[in-house]
Design a protein around this nucleic acid. Sequence first.
DNA 1: CCGCGACAGTTGAAGCGACAACTTGATTCA
DNA 2: TGAATCAAGTTGTCGCTTCAACTGTCGCGG
Lengths: 159, 159
Amino acid sequence: MAAWVRFVAVLELLPGVLDSQLRRDSGVTHFEYFVMAVLSETPGGAMRMTELAGATNATPSRLSHVVARLEERGYVERSPCPENGRATNARLTEGGRAKMRAAAPGHTAAVRRHVIDVLSPEQVTQLAAISDAILGSVAPAGPMAEGYRRYDGPAGESS
Amino acid sequence: MAAWVRFVAVLELLPGVLDSQLRRDSGVTHFEYFVMAVLSETPGGAMRMTELAGATNATPSRLSHVVARLEERGYVERSPCPENGRATNARLTEGGRAKMRAAAPGHTAAVRRHVIDVLSPEQVTQLAAISDAILGSVAPAGPMAEGYRRYDGPAGESS
DNA sequence: CCGCGACAGTTGAAGCGACAACTTGATTCA
DNA sequence: TGAATCAAGTTGTCGCTTCAACTGTCGCGG
């Protein structure tokens, strides 16, 4: 029970801290940053909306709103998929890539300072296993099933 | 960084799952439930707003809005503090207590199903320690007291 | 006694996310 | 072929959180 109360506090506070840092320093939310980070790591530079929604653990609706805002600011471009008339491809623009380059150092520093650096290497490993276990019970019941699994294999370079 | 990506997914998905369960089964949000839970555990049954904000990791503004909604629904009552004219005491009503009794079983079951039961006892202990460490860097003045700050500026080294 | 700053809490506007309804393109099958 | 069905996204609305500004109170120095 004590563990749960502390964990709830983390769930409540940490997103706000990360959001604040990115918004203050770079004018983007953490989720916007994460969306652009995922896009910046795709080989082709473009990704279909549903796939992007799965990779970012977002509902299609949320992703649509966010990408619309990012497009308005010139960080992302949307274009209808040639092969699939109902699909849409999202692609990071050069401006979006520049925004990422500018925002990444501050964000990674914040993540390290608030999470990674305060944990021992074993605790980081433990956190990965714990997160995995929780995701296993939460993701199937959540809005996005199986989406997080695309991060199972390789160790990504995001954030 | 693989650990971080998984943890971000948990931060993104878990609150939504808990919120959904409580909202669907009991018509309250997770934060509303948490506020009432803290109130229900106070010896006197009442608590100052600032103290309650600290205990629930919320900003004064957020707590004010939430308590106003809870008061409208008859779950909480506010009364000016006799000793301190500028302070306000929040107290759980009998209706609020009944709401808690009705909502608690489903919520604790959800917490167990999605978090506690999928972790080993050692992992629960590890999660408590990890949460504690993160809280230490995220809420420098401590979440149970005032002095809660959202972001205290860049202090780390950029890589 | 009065003014000034800090404290406790509230309020209103703006932004973001959830939910549901909708549009449009693909698929299935008789 | 053509209607029923499903999939991919989008949109509109509503509720919650945040931010800044505000009201009222306490404490203190002059």
